[in-house]
Amino acid sequence: MSSTTVTLEESGKNLWGGGVEPLKASYGKLMMWFFLLSDAFTFSALLIAYGLIRYSHPAYDGAITDFVFSQEYWPVPEMVFEAAPFLHGIHLPLVFVGIMTFILILSSVTMVLAVEAGHRMDKQDVEKWMLWTIVGGFTFLGCQAWEWSHFISGTEEGGRMLDGSIFYGANLTQNQYGPSNFAALFFFITGFHGFHVFSGVVFNFIIFYQTVVGILEKRGHYEMVEKVGLYWHFVDLVWVFVFTFFYLV
């Protein structure tokens, strides 16, 4: 018993507690991958549920220029998400959400650069790129907060409900844009993604802090940067899908 333990300890660094590492990945990275796989199932379920509910409602089939909000059919997303901050009353379909997409992709790029700097043991570069990633995450969250508040408060014209009254904005039971499920799914899907962004920013900040005070340098490697990096890229990946299936299609 003891002799086997000794031989394992001698054979190098790439060991888990019990023996040689499987799949040539450290314990933490492998567990992060399988967590992300399970998270991918959760987001798939949400987005596919969106598909099911959308397909069970009538689609708008007139010309796009004549589109008006109605409870009778599913709204065309580009007619709902067409506002941008400081540009009140101007029709800018999907422009703001496009900017959000670019912000998140850019923060993903700075995250890879942080991981790359970690491989080189370059503490200053890790700090720099982690900080940019955190800034990108907060910017995205700020954009999302604006988008939510605009969606909830609604447009000046509002929308006609089934009983003939005019309703402004959206909540979980009714909304001016279309069937109540539309707003409910908006809150659920972008909210769940936004919560992931928020927790990603928190993780990034913790690792940024550990880098700054030198914990990771003392440890001899920056693998924690890689692990939170995996999570952060996943958040970006989910947004790519949300962007396509919620805003474009």
Binding site: A40, G51, L52, Y55, S56
Partner: peptide
């Protein structure tokens, strides 16, 4: 996931 897409989109059409 691929299976779920097929199953639920067909189901959505059936509900419609």
């Amino acid at each position: 996931v691929v299976w779920l897409i097929a199953a639920l989109l067909i189901q959505g059409g059936a509900i419609f």
